[in-house]
Design a protein around this nucleic acid. Structure first.
Lengths: 188, 188
DNA sequence: CGATGCATGTAAGCTGTTACATGATTGC
DNA sequence: GCAATCATGTAACAGCTTACATGCATCG
């Protein structure tokens, strides 16, 4: 059985949690997830689900109670097996490796900006990150432990990640302001 | 002037730091970076640098001292401007948004595994993350503050990120083991 | 003199995106 | 009745990957 890629694994997981549900439900679940890495575009989801269905990991039943022939999806036994394999696949080094962060990419080259703009950079980034943290908290509150431990833990991950990025940017800001104080001192 | 995408921004930044250097240098720098998000494949780098050169952001001088006609790259004034704009572009919400983490993706659906396999998952992941943290530390030690503040800060980011993922997985492990203890208790 | 590293490139393919197209349902 | 949302799809394109191809340099 073929290994699922990231989006496929998440899609099967979402269907498993919400079955019976439509492809649209999958898209909306992806959009509301704490790391909106995927735009959950129709052009990605519909062909993907078609593929999973022809492979027998997902099955769909057309429900025409309302007049629009919605396709209600559910995960097959093979789909469950593939999902489990996908989760355990975390052993792969590239999946564990440090996450990609556009802020970090820019920090590496921040000395291309004059110092005052560097500090402005740290300020706007910090403000934006506070917003991300607030979002993560709201998401967490909507996923209490009683409603399912794994979803709750996933939500916690979002909060911890946002908090650690804030901690990092505070370190950056401190270093930059120390440098500025140093420059001011020499000027006198 | 067109906005640089992530890989382009990083590439220009690397050339600026190492100039005059070859495309190969850029690839190696990308590979050794703490978040190896990009494989730095030739098929990505060479067309990208060609594009940047025709747009006047990068210039190359052929150096044929050894017999192989290496192209030595440097960033133009326009390239510097574009790099600065790329850095400041961090205001965009999708760049600040919570990072994508395959571990988190799987935690959301971990209850599809039996409890003992969930705990095994947390153990193998933690071990692997300790390795990532060790790598990040080594990288940091090779980038002391004296050798350049921004590179040093970038390296710190890798350490903080790895540490926060470890903290999270410890939380997960604790919750899972509590659940197991609970189950054992009921069994008696 | 052979393996490894440096160095430059191309072709095919995968995976996602944006943008478009269509139509039914629901709530105001 | 009109807007927003639910719902399903397609076509063109962007951006990166793998895999291949080539050849010189350097070190043991």
């Amino acid at each position: 059985m073929r290994e699922l890629n990231e989006l496929e694994g998440v899609a099967v997981g979402i269907i498993g949690e919400n079955a019976p549900c439509t492809a649209y439900t999958v898209r909306m679940a992806l959009k509301s997830s704490p790391s909106s890495h995927w735009r959950a575009s129709a052009g990605a989801i519909y062909p993907l689900l078609e593929r999973l269905e022809t492979e027998g990991l997902v099955r769909s039943v057309v429900d025409d109670n309302d007049g629009r022939g919605r396709k209600l999806l559910h995960v097959t036994r093979d789909g469950q097996t593939a999902l489990k394999a996908w989760i355990k696949d975390i052993g792969r080094p590239d999946l564990i490796a440090n996450v990609f962060d556009p802020i970090r990419s820019r920090i590496f080259f921040i000395d291309n900006l004059p110092l005052d703009e560097q500090i402005r950079f740290s300020e706007t980034t910090l403000t934006a990150l506070e917003g991300v943290l607030a979002d993560a908290h709201r998401f967490l509150e909507s996923r209490p432990a009683e409603a399912g431990l794994s979803t709750h833990l996933g939500a916690i991950s979002g909060v911890i990640s946002a908090q650690s990025r804030i901690d990092f940017m505070k370190t950056v800001q401190k270093a930059l302001k120390a440098q500025q104080a140093d420059a001011d001192h020499k000027e006198c």
